[in-house]
């Protein structure tokens, strides 16, 4: 499928992409520092953490749920990773443990939602606090710092001139897109979000899928924690505060409906990039920190409003 045809087929994403391109255009006019290779790589790197968390949230939101615990899960998984590394575990094993912790937290969310019949908002709100407390407990509230260069390569390394975290992000998006579009699980995710009752009566294993979806969300938060820990050379138990909100914003800007059933992984990537570019651009322009917050909030609202207008014009 050629790019123009792809855009026509995904008109909603085309809108988001257009917003993104306009934003880039505006910024390259306003500051000479924006459109440089090093800055673009810089933006990409800064987008990675939010983008990876947002993939998980995209799945959760597509299925009609919400996950508020990702920021805390990121912190918990991060400190587990850091403690494992400091205990001398080999890097792959430590990362594995970190991902397991993240997925386990997600599984708890999923079980509470699917079998405990708790509203996702409540279940994940609870786990948000539990995971945060857990992270503070195991570290006694202190950051865990200082790792081998082999681990830090995940943040500092480059392959073909592109930083490793950016490759990781692209890989995550590639796989997530494929899974959503080309596997049963992916189909089930959108079907459950679109109409849970109809999905159940069509033989979709709704409960099992939900557990899987939240486990995936937790696992991706843990994956983000790997990249964050490598980047900061430290895992903080207070890391990731309010990251869930950034990830929700990226997902929604990317055109995923909070009602579930509609949206795309690709859109979320663009949504995360919009947020990254905006923050970067405002920094480059030297805009005051207070104004930045106003502008970012306004852009989130504008992007979603645009979506409503866009859908309205089709009706």
């Amino acid at each position: 499928m050629t790019l123009p045809r792809f855009l026509v087929a995904n008109a909603r994403q085309a809108g988001t992409v257009a917003v993104f391109l306009v934003l880039c255009l505006v910024l390259s006019v306003l500051t000479p520092h924006f459109l440089t290779t090093s800055n673009l790589l810089n933006v990409a790197q800064q987008t990675v953490i939010n983008a990876v968390i947002a993939v998980g949230l995209t799945y959760v939101i597509l299925s009609g749920g919400i996950d508020l615990s990702v920021g805390s899960v990121l912190a918990l998984a991060g400190v587990v990773l850091a403690l494992a590394l400091q205990a001398g575990w080999p890097v792959p094993l430590a990362i594995g443990a970190c991902l397991v912790v993240g997925a386990a937290c997600g599984t708890v969310n999923g079980l509470l939602v699917a079998f405990g019949r708790l509203p996702p908002f409540i279940a994940t709100l609870g786990l948000m606090s539990v995971a945060r407390g857990g992270a503070l407990l195991v570290t006694d509230g202190r950051p865990v710092s200082g790792f081998d260069a082999s681990f830090r390569w995940l943040a500092t390394g480059e392959v073909l001139g592109i930083p490793v975290p950016v490759w990781c992000m692209l890989a995550v998006y590639g796989v997530a897109h494929f899974v959503l579009k080309r596997t049963k699980f992916g189909r089930y995710v959108v079907a459950i979000g679109g109409n849970e009752e109809a999905s159940l009566l069509s033989g979709v294993p709704v409960a099992a899928c939900k557990v899987g979806i939240y486990a995936l969300g937790g696992g991706l938060a843990a994956a983000a924690s790997v990249l964050l820990t490598a980047r900061l050379n430290s895992a903080q138990p207070i890391a990731g505060l309010s990251y869930e909100l950034d990830a929700i914003a990226a997902t929604v800007i990317g055109g995923t409906s909070l009602m579930g059933g509609q949206g795309s992984v690709f859109g979320t990537l663009v949504g995360a990039l919009i947020m990254g570019v905006l923050r970067n651009g405002l920094n480059l322009l030297g805009v005051s920190s207070y104004v930045q917050q106003v502008v970012i909030g306004a852009v989130i609202i504008a992007a979603v409003l645009l979506d409503t207008v866009f859908k309205g014009s089709k009706r």
């Binding site: 306009v22 910024l27 405002l282 805009v287 005051s288 104004v291 504008a302």
Partner: peptide
């Protein structure tokens, strides 16, 4: 369908341009 996008472009342009021109000596 491009009207909203153009609208967005105009708004973001003026917003950012406004920021760029702000009296903030830093900016």
């Amino acid at each position: 369908k491009f009207t909203p996008v153009l609208l967005f472009a105009a708004v973001s342009l003026s917003l950012l341009a406004g920021c760029g021109r702000s009296p903030d000596p830093a900016a």
